[in-house]
Design a protein around this nucleic acid. Structure first.
Lengths: 208, 208
DNA sequence: CCATGCAGTTAACAACTGTTCTCCGGAATT
DNA sequence: AATTCCGGAGAACAGTTGTTAACTGCATGG
């Protein structure tokens, strides 16, 4: 039944977390396909063989990281989109929301950006599937908007993909920019805002 | 003076090409940060130490691949953009142009998409610099268009970046789709065309 | 309270990695 | 024709990798 958490499983989850965190740190300056099993265990301070108690291989660990990273990204997207119709301050708020998320989970964002086209097939597939799910959710959100009247389902999905891709591009730009108060960061924010604005303008005049 | 090509340099360039090609092939199912020096030389059929006659390390090889890959991508972008104003068939032609390029140089496209956010800093920087150059060229091209009257330089550059990113996204989608005559491929082409169209609509109504 | 389960350890394995040094043969230079 | 130059080969190095096996200790469930 596994009803009680137990000291046992608690410890297991703890080292699992440590493995994930260590991997995430190591992945800031390399890609998953070069991440060694021993490298991770060494960083955690645990025997190499302990790794197998949690993951079959580093690719499996990568898939787990995808779930975690996009799980944390998940709530953000809905908010971003439901805010990204036309109003100027709403766009600014959406961009700011992305910036805050990148600040809060930089390693997660970097991991997704890096492994989206990375060298490990299963991880790529996991990311693609999750991003597709996001696009469909965004699509649903857009459909609720009265501005979407007369739009075909296909066109809505195409716009949703545009938004999702744009969000990832923006997040990646924030990642490379120096943190909190910097001119570069403001530049990125303004660029992203204007790009979103242009897309919104295109959306408004789509039916011609 | 190095006036004559010579049998000597010809052979050197030949094995250099072999190294680059072998690396490009190996990089189809892994990323650069996990590409081993010996792995490449083994694929070519030369001694591991021969590698050093051409590159200091695999990162240097990666930078060379960036130049090569984006060199081949270079002429395409200008054509794509100078064709991507508003007319419907022009957009279709631009998308078809991207598709053809992906067919002609799939390994190059994959490499750029993969290493753009990959684990090797110098290669990332090289790609970013080249893409920035592309964006500026696209910007120049857009400026010539009478439709860009009244646009600020910043706004033109932001549109240029939008186009460049959109092109990479599209190229990456073509890469994953099955080759020549497939329904999936047509789906990607239509999606890309509509996204370009929406951007064009936004561009047309930007000054409001 | 005792027996089972299981996270983590230790040791060892063959295979692989990047790098250095020394050498060879043939093109290039004079 | 003699000499230099240099792309490549060969061997050896210390260090790393993933994976297996048999183990230890301790929380768990009967």
């Amino acid at each position: 039944m596994s009803h009680t958490p137990g000291v046992r499983q608690a410890q297991k989850l703890k080292t699992r977390r440590a493995l994930l965190d260590a991997a995430l740190t190591l992945l800031e300056e390399q890609s998953l396909s070069s991440l060694g099993l021993r490298e991770v265990t060494r960083a955690v301070g645990v025997a190499p063989t302990a790794f197998y108690r949690h993951f079959r291989c580093t690719a499996d660990l990568g898939v787990a990281l995808v779930d975690e990273a996009l799980g944390s990204l998940h709530p953000m997207i809905r908010t971003t989109v439901s805010d990204a119709d036309d109003s100027e301050e709403r766009i600014a708020r959406a961009v700011e929301l992305i910036a805050r998320h990148v600040d809060a989970y930089p390693a997660h964002v970097r991991f997704i950006a890096r492994e989206r086209h990375g060298g490990v097939q299963r991880v790529r597939a996991a990311i693609q599937e999750q991003l597709g799910r996001f696009a469909r959710e965004v699509c649903d959100e857009l459909a609720k908007d009265p501005q979407s009247a007369g739009w075909s389902a296909d066109d809505l999905l195409m716009l949703a993909h545009l938004y999702v891709d744009q969000m990832l591009v923006t997040a990646s730009l924030f990642l490379e920019a120096p943190p909190a108060p910097s001119a570069e960061r403001e530049r990125v924010a303004r660029l992203a805002a204007r790009q979103l604005r242009l897309i919104s303008v295109g959306r408004r005049h789509w039916r011609d």
